[in-house]
Each structure stands twice: as C-alpha cells, then as structure tokens.
Computed example of a mutant assay.
Amino acid sequence: MRPASGFKRIGKFIWLSLFGRWIFLLLIPWFVPTISYLLIGEPYLESFSNFIWGTLMVLLMTTLAFIPHDWAVQYIADLYPSIHLSAKRAGFTVLAFCLLTGVYISVYVMFIIRFRPLNAELSTDGVIKVYLFEFFAILLLTCLYEVNYSLKKWKEIKMNKEAIKKAGLQGQLQSLKSQVNPHFLFNSLNTLSALITDEPQRAERFVDEMAKVYRYLLQTNEHELTDLATEINFIRSYYHLLRTRYDTGLVLHINVDDVALESFIPPLTLQLLVENAVKHNTILEKNPLTIEITSLESNLLEVKNNVIVKSTHVRSTQLGLANINAKYQILSARQPVISAGPDYFVVLLPLLTEKPVNQ
C-alpha cells in the first residue's frame, strides 16, 4: 500500500477533511515535539525513551484535539460558504478554536500536573507558555484553513463562470436556431407582408417587437442572470410575434407581483418554456393554447400551459429543459420542478434573490 493511500485511509477513519489530513501531517514534525517539551519540561529530553513516550503521548492528545477542530472548520464553512464572508468565517473559526483548545489544553495541563507522567515539570510559567503557543497555533491554523477555502471557492467560481458561459452559448445558439431558420423567417415575413398591405401600423409594431427580440437574444449571453422584469418585457415582445402569427389560438397571462420582478433568473428561461409549449401543442382558435406565468410564495415562478396533443408526434430533444436545469445547478441549490400531466405542463422556477457581484 502506498503511503499516500494509507494516509487517505487514516484520514477517512478519523473523519478529517482532505485539507485537514495534510494540515495534521504538517503539524506532527514541529508542533508535537514543541508542545511536548512545553508540557513535560526538561525530562522530555533527558533520555531517548522519555522523548519517544512523551511524543507518542502528546501525539495522541493532539489527534484527539485536532479532529473536532477540523469538524468545526467544516461546519462553519457550511454556515458561511460565500467567498465574501471570509472575515466572518475566520472570526468564528478563531472563536471555535479558542473554545476547543481551551477545553483540551486545560484538561491536559491538569492531567500533567496531577499525574506527572515521565516526571513532568510543568510550572505556572510553563502553563502560560503552553497557552500562548496554542494561541499562535490557532491563528496559524485559521489562516491556513481560510486561505485554502478561499482559493478553492475562487477556483469553483472560475469554473462555474466557464460552465455558465458554455450553457449560455448553447442556450443562445438554440434560441437563434429556433428563430433564425428558414421556416420561422418565411412565416414571419409572410405575416409582415400581409400586415404591410392591410395594416401598416401593425406591421410597424411587428418590426419593432422583432427588433427587441433579436436584440435581447444577441445581448443576453453577456450575463449569468437577468432580473425578472427584463425577462418579462422580452417575453411580451416574443409573445407579440407569436400572437401575430397564431392570433387567438395562443394566449399569454402574466401575473407577477412587484417583489418577484426584482428577483433574478437565468436569461432566456421563459423564452425556452414558451417555445417548448408552442412546439409540442396544437394551436387552435376554438381551443387556444394558454400559457400562464405566475409568481408564487417562497420565491417561485410558475410557468403553466394546457396540453393539447398534436395529431403528429413531435420528437422532443429535451435540450431546452436540460439547458435550464444546467444553469440552475450552477447558480442555486434550488432546482426547477417539472410536472407533466395529461392536462397541464407545469414548471416551477426558483427566483434568485441575489445577483452575483461580478455582474
């Protein structure tokens, strides 16, 4: 068995984080002999046997004390995971370390004074030195843990930005493919041509809304999130194009409160869901396809449409829904919930209340 493999197994057995195992390994050569000398005094160096037994005794004490310290670090990191909370995380780490170290060192000092193993000579000055040395170790450990955590979070953010960019490009490409294809352009130009002849004012409005749609599609990939108000305005323009084509066969209801409008979602999320509804359902004036966008409690947005099965099966690639899920997996711990029933197709989207600082 290789040393590294054995080291990992020992770390897992005593339940230390990976970084905690390396920190513990780095502590042994200098921390254990130093604190052994401070606790035992001159007898620690009087004989080789005293040195070995004293080192093993303090190593056991150090191990028992280090494990809960590492647990405390992991617990505090879970409570304050943001990279922008470094000061608060470090402060609570120092506090937790001081409390734990104070308890353990007090117990060990009382043990040394009471039983005097290896003829230990621990004076009052020695006790003070032990506590001062431990405080120095606390500050050092806190710095090492915080630097490691911040570097790891920075790498995660960098990787997430790349993943977001890739997902955004895929979403933008899919949106452009679904809009800028000969079939869509043919229908749009036919609609525009008819409007120019019969209703020039509507034709002008149609061109304005189309320009808004394309401008949003081309610019939206610059950001990981967009506020819901902006996305809703885009959907109104997108719906205008669809409504002009399908007339009363397509209906959109938007019922979103002002608080929800200030929240954030990945851009083009609503467009992908509206497009998905239009693609997979029959649109008839006597039985319109109705899409409802409604804000709910618990920072949720419901996108719901009635199901009107097409006579000819449309193959679903699931790319739109997969794209939405991929973005939410990177941006939030909360994920969309999809409910596909015989009468309605419902998607619950978490609304994000904080926009990344780097936007």
Rank of each mutant, 00 (worst) to 15 (best):
Y104T: 14
A260L: 03
L217T: 12
I338A: 09
V207R: 08
N305D: 00
P117H: 07
L349W: 06
Q335S: 01
H253V: 10
F66W: 09
L273G: 06
L45A: 01
L351V: 07
N325T: 05
G20C: 11
F48G: 03
K177D: 09
N305H: 07
T62E: 13
V207I: 15
A322T: 12
Y149C: 00
A87S: 08
G171I: 14
A326V: 00
L289Q: 00
T124D: 14
L195T: 05
R202Y: 03
K161I: 06
P33L: 03
S175G: 12
I293T: 04
A211H: 14
Q174I: 09
F51I: 02
S49P: 01
L16A: 04
D343N: 13
K165F: 11
A4H: 06
L195H: 09
A77Y: 08
Q335R: 02
L16M: 15
Y104W: 13
E262V: 02
K165S: 11
L185Y: 10
L300R: 12
K153D: 06
P33V: 06
N299L: 11
A137G: 11
L95C: 04
I128N: 08
D247E: 15
I76R: 11
R243Q: 15
H240Y: 15
L56H: 04
A87V: 13
V357D: 10
Q174T: 13
Y238W: 08
T282Q: 15
K310F: 00
I254E: 11
E146P: 05
S150C: 05
L241K: 06
T142Q: 06
F135W: 13
I254L: 15
L348N: 04
A77F: 09
Q359K: 11
G91S: 15
L139R: 05
K279S: 02
I235A: 04
L331Y: 02
L252T: 14
R9D: 06
V303N: 03
E297I: 12
I254Q: 07
N160L: 01
L348C: 00
I83L: 05
E354R: 10
Y80C: 09
N190P: 03
S188Q: 02
S237T: 11
L321Q: 11
W15T: 10
A194R: 13
D78M: 07
I291A: 01
S49K: 07
K158D: 15
K279A: 04
E285I: 01
V314C: 04
P266E: 10
L176T: 08
K355I: 15
F66P: 06
K310Q: 01
P266R: 00
R116T: 14
E162R: 06
N221Y: 01
A90C: 09
L195G: 12
P33E: 02
L241S: 01
T290P: 03
P356H: 11
D258E: 14
V109D: 01
K355S: 14
R215M: 09
T197H: 08
P29H: 11
I283S: 01
